[in-house]
Design a protein around this nucleic acid. Sequence first.
DNA 1: AACTGCTATGACACCGATGTCATGACTTCG
DNA 2: CGAAGTCATGACATCGGTGTCATAGCAGTT
Lengths: 361, 361
Amino acid sequence: MATIYDVAKAASVSPKTVSRVLNGDAPVGKETRKAVETAMAELGYVPSNAARMMRSNRSGLIGLVTGALSHKLEPMEPTGLPDLYIVQGIQKVMADSGKTLIIADTGGTSAKVPQLVRTFLQHRVEALIYVADYHQQVTLDTGAGNCPVVLVNCFDADGTPAILPDDECCQFELVTDLIRSGHERIAYLTLDPAMVATELRSRGYRAALEAADIPYDGALEIMARKNVEEDDGGLLQRALDSVLALDGPPTVICCGNDEMALRLYGLIRSRGLRIPEDVSVAGFDNYRAIAETLYPPLTTVELPYLAMGQRAAEIALGMIKGEDEQLAGPEMVPGPVHWRSSVTALNSVTKLRSNTGSTFS
Amino acid sequence: MATIYDVAKAASVSPKTVSRVLNGDAPVGKETRKAVETAMAELGYVPSNAARMMRSNRSGLIGLVTGALSHKLEPMEPTGLPDLYIVQGIQKVMADSGKTLIIADTGGTSAKVPQLVRTFLQHRVEALIYVADYHQQVTLDTGAGNCPVVLVNCFDADGTPAILPDDECCQFELVTDLIRSGHERIAYLTLDPAMVATELRSRGYRAALEAADIPYDGALEIMARKNVEEDDGGLLQRALDSVLALDGPPTVICCGNDEMALRLYGLIRSRGLRIPEDVSVAGFDNYRAIAETLYPPLTTVELPYLAMGQRAAEIALGMIKGEDEQLAGPEMVPGPVHWRSSVTALNSVTKLRSNTGSTFS
DNA sequence: AACTGCTATGACACCGATGTCATGACTTCG
DNA sequence: CGAAGTCATGACATCGGTGTCATAGCAGTT
């Protein structure tokens, strides 16, 4: 690989002059510049980041630790593929800032994290971003020293900057939209309560009811999914039977995620009911392969993973620049409701329903 | 950040001795070693890869160019998320070899590739891997010079080493398994013929029929999906009607992918038919969120994305080591059939069907 | 005793960039 | 015309490690 000295020799100038052409930080004669550029092209010269970094101490690298690449091997997927969208958001912002992402995967074992962080520090990353595969609390033993750290889709007890999906707000918006469409008996089949998101969404569900002066009916909110092998879908089936048997059966059923909704479609139809004429269904995650492919297409909420990734990247960049806007705790990012035909309007003023609070479609 | 000199001073030894402790490439006295290790721990010393690289010329970095992170923003997803599994496979092998992955995303614009490659070369990556989001031909203007390049899920005209899914073999295995189960009238609803995979799979389908002495009936093989906005699913509906109206209707319907199968479930049931009692269904991709969630679970083929990634990484590592086992063209990797209850056996000798050719379950 | 061989360590140059400072040519101004 | 300022360029040190070679101490050999 050609070095700056080779180029200098070929162009009959000093290495420093080549450096000046490269960085444009000092005036260079027209002739000289042309000679240098020719030499560079002929030799296929590409400057070495390593050498450059030794003086400047700026690696241009951002370290990203995630389980995104491995967690899909696990049998249980609590949600869709949030982390990938997050990584995507981060990548986009970083690329626009001229930073290069270096990625390491935990392989599902958080014990590997310190090792991975060490590797990153060896490469002198300018910031570290940790992306979790679902909304959870973590205890990160980074040993990252003074390297900026941002958590995404997770938070810790030490007030490390964190970007989180606003599960509560999302569920609130969805249920509020349902209420605007005339629904009042709204069932909610929840995910495993062990998940942080479950509790948050439940709050959003209740808050929306309360805001509309609809009394909360505990019989309508049922846990219908457990993250254990024994849950073969039986929970969902029983939950459905339970709410349908109520005196005032629900006109719409909210699901903890889109996969649950997909199963529910089958269960509802096998009971001879139509969607949405007899009962409406709403999901969560906007898992498009499901939500858009189902018939009728599924009304669901999109967690703002892409936006979260972007925001996390912005925060990280800010911390690199030393801006003191360091948020000392979690920042919640809301996401939009995707209204599709799996939910029918019970009143005629459908148009009242608008995309409140959504920042993107 | 502490340097090797700081450590040397703290331990009252020469920098070179610290280096020896780090790399274990020469004997170091017990006492001395302990002193150095203590100093390193106290100072939180992490060696700089940049400095190390300047002498050794080994960056420990592997460059990965992909559209994996952005293509899911596109409205049309021809297949599942193959590239992610590929990246996962690569990551795993590279991590095991102590290499760090640096990732850049094309953002869907292949025009960005030269720029990305340049960045990688600046970081002196030891190899470049390009991952496409679906099986296709590419023309890569890398300008990578003498840096090893491996293509995954795509190939070019120059004989660059490439790892490809064996679409033909996969479809062959699936159809052969169907035939073993007693099916003879096997419909095949294909994807857009513009895709490389479509033609290959079609060949596999016909080869399986031929191997079993079942005459090929063109009326059973219908294009049912086009990658254009106008295709709202109408093609699939008409294709289904068409095969069901035949004199000898199919006993099993193969789909170009799992999403198509998901839609087909709905269409078949809306015609009052049961799956698999009245007609069996098979998919393609083993898109688990769909295949395992549907009721009944979907028989489908898994393209060996993970294995492809691993293989690509191995090839790349081999090229780095300078091994001459360089394959000069594409290498095809087969994948396993996942047999689930969406296909019924028409004969009683179900047990004949075994996981032929599958290397993993 | 002189020599060989091994262990443990340090001095020093070097990798490929860039920051600092110096220098020579030329312009501009009082 | 001489002083001051600008432009274009180069010499040299430096960043943080590692390769090479030298050296000193201490067996073991003959």
